[in-house]
Amino acid sequence: MEPKIEISSLRVKYGSKEALKGLSFQIMKNEILGIIGPAQSGKTTLLKVVNRTIEHVPGVELNGMVSIDGVDIFKMRDVHALRRRVGMVAPLPVGLPLSIYENVAFAPRTGGMNNKAKLDVIVERCLTQAALWDEVKDRLHTLGTKLSGGQQQRLTIARALSHNPEILCLDEFSIAIDPVTTMRIEEVLKELRSSMTIILVTNLVQQARRLADRTAFILNGELVELAETNLLFSDQAVDQRTKDYVGGIFG
């Protein structure tokens, strides 16, 4: 397997507070990498680095290297093109105050696509992939913000898929939605694995266990352990802290 994303000695500082303290690891092509760890351990920061939205945070300081397909992302001139290669799903569902259709068509449109017929195709494909099409196909032109939380989260996923990303990052996507919807989205992710690399940051240890090929445990901005999910969740985990966290002793 070839690496899709390479991260080497990545450090991120917000003012005097160090959020990531020198992370180094690789994410393989077409794998689901689970990232687990307690709150405030730097998981969201890591995702923000991958699509460089971290640059919108005032007073942030970056060190180290992140590359996608061997190209340093910080040397890419068009940051927006980078972001179209990386789909991002935030913890809380964000339906933009646009119609459902425009929510999904938003990214292609900002990327310069204005062909109505092609947009129709993209919208239908993405909503179907996100398991939302059947519920909303009759009301595509109503406001996305009026959908339920679970529907909005699937809408967010559809939007993240709309520009055909190579990488999909999900940041605790199930935090605000019900278990049934969570299960449906998990099914969706299993299907997407064949076509993209998925980084799944999760607060639910069991979710990583169900979905991830490999799992990384991050604590206080440091990578404690990265291993095959089966290994990490078995007695063979190397680090005592991993055992404790997975076993529910803290976190």
Binding site: A81, R84, P108, T110, G111, G112, M113, H163, N164
Partner: peptide, 10 residues
């Protein structure tokens, strides 16, 4: 990517 923003809009 199969589409590109127009020069004008930039």
């Amino acid at each position: 990517m199969q589409y590109q923003r127009g020069r004008w809009s930039r």
